[in-house]
Amino acid sequence: MEGIRTVTKQILTVISKHPHHTIFCTLFMFSILINSILIGYMGLPAFIDSFNNPSKYELLSSDQLTLESSKNYAGAIIERQCFDDLSKNELTGFLCLRSSQGTYTIYSQTREGIDASISDEFVGEVVTLIPNDPVSLFACLWWQQTIEFKNNLLS
């Protein structure tokens, strides 16, 4: 107990002596954590690709989405895709379609199954569904802000 108190006191002394360094290190650690979460959700190739081709990726919030499944998600990251002949593609993961009202719907079906039921516009494939917890939501917002900032910086 005494040891923990001494260590806490030493840490607080260092923080009070170097507040700016502490903030920088905290931000850096935080960024590593957030980006690790995102790599875990999106996968490394999609994560890197989202920074190279930001226009391909879109973050949809829960109020824009209508989910087919009953699970409660905070949103989704979509990779925009174009197909000339939709019937020939072999996508089997989660797909995103936009209705004429502008709302997005996610289907966990094959393209053929969706074609049979509706005629909405195909937007792309779902890279990841964001679980409804504050850390995941924050990670996605962080990703969105970083992409926007990188774009503004380079344009």
């Binding site: 960024s31 920074f51 962080w142 970083t146």
Partner: peptide
């Protein structure tokens, strides 16, 4: 180059937020 790229992605918002904080 991939490690450097990821390091850049990690550092970019850190530097930006730190500059605003400062």
């Amino acid at each position: 180059s991939m490690i450097l790229y990821i390091l850049g992605i990690i550092l970019l918002p850190v530097v930006f937020f730190y500059a605003l904080y400062y």
